[in-house]
Amino acid sequence: MPKKLRGRAADFIFAAPLTVAFVVMFGFFAIYGDGFFEADNLQNVALQSAALCIVAVAIGLVMIAGYIDLSVGSVMGFSGVAAGYLITQSHWSPVWASIVGVALGALSGLVNGVLVAYLRFSALIVTLGALTILRGATFAITPQTFYDFGPGFAVFGSGHFLSVPIPVWIAAAVCIAATVFLQYTAGGRHVYAVGVSQEAAYFSGINVRRIPLFLFVVSGAAAGLAGIITIARIDAAPSGSLGVGFELSALTAVLLGGVSFAGGRGSVFGILLGVLFLGILQNGLAIMNVSFANQQIANGLALVVATALEAGSAWLSRRMGVRRLARRPVTTPVAVGREPA
């Protein structure tokens, strides 16, 4: 029987290399990282990952449909700083300022979506342009930082409900909503179809324009939401740094989580795992007094190694698959397909 067990374990490792790497890393930090495996620290990791999680899930949806949204970092900055302006300069209520912040994000997503989905511009170029334009617009609001949004707003970023931080609840809600959307709505299946083959989806009668438009709006709104949560958590809206480079962190998490650049593949669970992987790696390394420079290097290495792992495991499982098929030819898809029962 040991042979069979080994086969099962191997299957699992091949199926989910990131899960395995995640567990190994978690175990390593739990044993060697002083104070890593404590409720406070883990809660801190979750809190710091919440904004990234929201943005990563949203651009993950865009990428499953075969597109890309690079503008999220600047959208986050723009929405956050705009909300900060409304609260501190116009003395709006935090709730209305937040709603406007999210709406501004959705609006920029709408513009991206119309350009990409309906006018068929390159998503890479359009959203790269939006990244620069919105950073400029953020500086136009203020080159400085707005502070001190009052206690009512701070709850949004650092308050607790059932001893879990509010942003974590929000991120969880986003994850659940995205999962329900992908798995349990017709639109979710259409997202995968568009990502696998836009042409085949078009010939099946799917609206191949509306799906990506909707996803770009969602992605913009999610980035706006992440901006609001972040300024509430740090009680400041720095136009020079809010959301800067965030699109790359989100992209890293999404790719780690098994979404492919080619589209048509990926799950919310995978993206969540990618986000937590990055969050824990950063936290664990910081606890072990690894310098910031080396943390950055580790982040990059993680992505490359994960890709290599996936490619390697696909290759290995293909080889093992071939051997298995040779032993039991009845289960080969082609053989069964040719002799339908």
């Binding site: 995968y192 179809a193 696998v196 083959s197 042409e199 085949a200 989806a201 099946s204 048509g264």
Partner: peptide, 9 residues
Amino acid sequence: LRQALLGEL
């Protein structure tokens, strides 16, 4: 393969 089938689904 291009216009009808969704190979990955």
